[in-house]
Computed example of a mutant assay.
Amino acid sequence: MKKFFTPLFFITCIILLAACSRGIYRSETKDLETLIKRLTKKGSDDKVLADIRSVYEPALQRAQQNISNYRYDAPPQKWDRMIPEMQAMQQMFDIINTNQYAVRMIKPVNFYRNIAEAKDSAAADWYNYANDYFERAGRNNYKEAFEAYNKSISYVPNYKDARQKMQEAFDRSLIYVLVNQVQYDGFGFNNNWNWNNYNSRDQQLQNQIIRDLGGRNNRNIPAYYFNEWDLRRENRAPDMVIDMVWRNMRSDQPRDRTRNYNRSKKIETGRDTANKPIYQTVTATVYVTERYLEANADMNIIFTDAKNRTQVDWQAIPASYRTSIEFATYSGDRRALEDNDWNLINRGQNQPLPNREEVFEQLMRNIYNDLLNRIRRVTGW
């Protein structure tokens, strides 16, 4: 699927740049805190005061220059650069303001009013920006509007009707998603899984996926998820259809891998004439068999626009599963063996490995969260 850069992409870049701008002042702010604490402890000190000035004044000049430059950027994005600069300098002002001697000597600039005015302007510009996209309609435009309204209220909570319009943009973006049962294509234990026997289990899995996505009650992303029957009860045609297809399913027959190791131990066999213990070295060999089973498959997720019958996206998630059992025999003197050896020896050689159904369930379990997250990403914004 082709990816296009939207205005939201550039908004995100601006936000990241603003975060970097705040980071530039982080070390200077920390140095300033340390110096003000030192000055407060000493009462007055020309050397400390000079150090404070050497930290604050270059930072102030840089911030004022940046703010002046950003004024010529396009609204509303410029506010995401300007306001963090003001906030960083306001934080420095607040630190210096804790020491009245430093305030008199340094005369820091109070940005409180500038920040308040800038936030009002930012809220207004982001609100107008959102309205423009809201009026264009269409899911992508509603997405831009939603994010922009959210930016507006991040600067001025409850700005006009931004919160209401934000909800309306979300509601107008809602799509009804049909999630079909899992299908199987080109698989096999010797090319014969006989999965037609598990239709009821497939239906349970389908319903679990829908339930974990939020179903009809989802509030996190603008999408409702249904099976075919529930969608009919809603008397709605789907906007998007999701098909999940297991492909390249393969599970080898159980295989054995062997290894062996030796044990030796000194044991007391009696006493000599001086009543001293007599020792004998006994040995044994333990033969361990690891019986293992490996399975793998690819879960293909196909997203289709139900209205124009075009593929929206296609993704594949590789899944794998390995399990094993161990048992052992031995030769030699049993007295040389340890408890761990006996644990292996006492295990039966007929321990069951997972059957086909259990292998399938484990493959699905291994990729389940990834499956849900990918569905959310494609069906959401």
Rank of each mutant, 00 (worst) to 15 (best):
K3E: 15
K3F: 10
T6F: 13
I11Y: 14
C20Q: 12
S21I: 14
G23Q: 15
I24T: 09
R26V: 10
S27C: 02
E28P: 01
E28N: 14
T29A: 10
T29F: 07
D31E: 13
K41W: 06
V48N: 02
L49E: 07
P58L: 03
A59G: 00
S68Q: 03
Y70F: 11
Y70E: 01
Y72Q: 04
D73R: 08
P75I: 00
I83K: 00
I83H: 00
M86C: 00
Q91S: 04
F93D: 00
D94V: 00
N97H: 08
N99C: 02
V103Y: 01
M105Y: 03
Y112W: 05
R113S: 04
I115L: 10
A116M: 11
A116H: 15
K119C: 14
D120Y: 10
S121A: 12
A122F: 07
D132T: 06
R136E: 12
R136W: 09
R139V: 04
N140F: 11
N141A: 06
K143E: 15
A145W: 09
F146P: 06
Y149N: 05
Y149A: 03
Y155H: 10
P157C: 08
N158I: 07
N158D: 15
D161M: 02
D161P: 05
M166F: 01
M166H: 00
M166S: 04
Q167M: 08
E168C: 00
R172N: 13
R172P: 08
Y176K: 09
F187R: 15
F187P: 07
N190L: 12
N192T: 14
R201F: 08
N207E: 09
N207T: 03
P222Y: 01
N227S: 10
D230C: 00
R232T: 10
R232A: 12
N235A: 11
P238L: 06
V241Q: 05
R247W: 03
N248A: 11
M249Q: 06
M249D: 01
R250G: 05
Q253A: 05
R257I: 09
R257H: 05
R259D: 02
N260Y: 10
R263C: 04
K265D: 03
I267Q: 03
E268P: 00
A274S: 08
T281K: 03
A284F: 07
V286P: 06
V286G: 07
V288I: 09
T289D: 03
E294Y: 10
A295W: 08
N296Q: 09
A297R: 12
D298L: 03
N300W: 06
I301H: 05
A306W: 09
A306T: 15
K307D: 13
N308Q: 09
N308C: 05
D313E: 13
D313Y: 06
P318H: 08
P318M: 01
A319E: 14
S320M: 08
Y321N: 07
T323A: 09
S324A: 09
S324F: 13
I325K: 14
I325P: 02
S331K: 09
R334Q: 14
N340T: 05
D341A: 08
N343A: 12
N343F: 07
N346A: 07
P352M: 02
P352K: 07
L353S: 12
L353E: 14
R356I: 06
V359E: 12
F360P: 03
M364L: 10
R365W: 04
R365M: 10
R374V: 13
I375H: 11
I375D: 11
V378A: 11
T379I: 02
G380L: 06
W381Q: 07
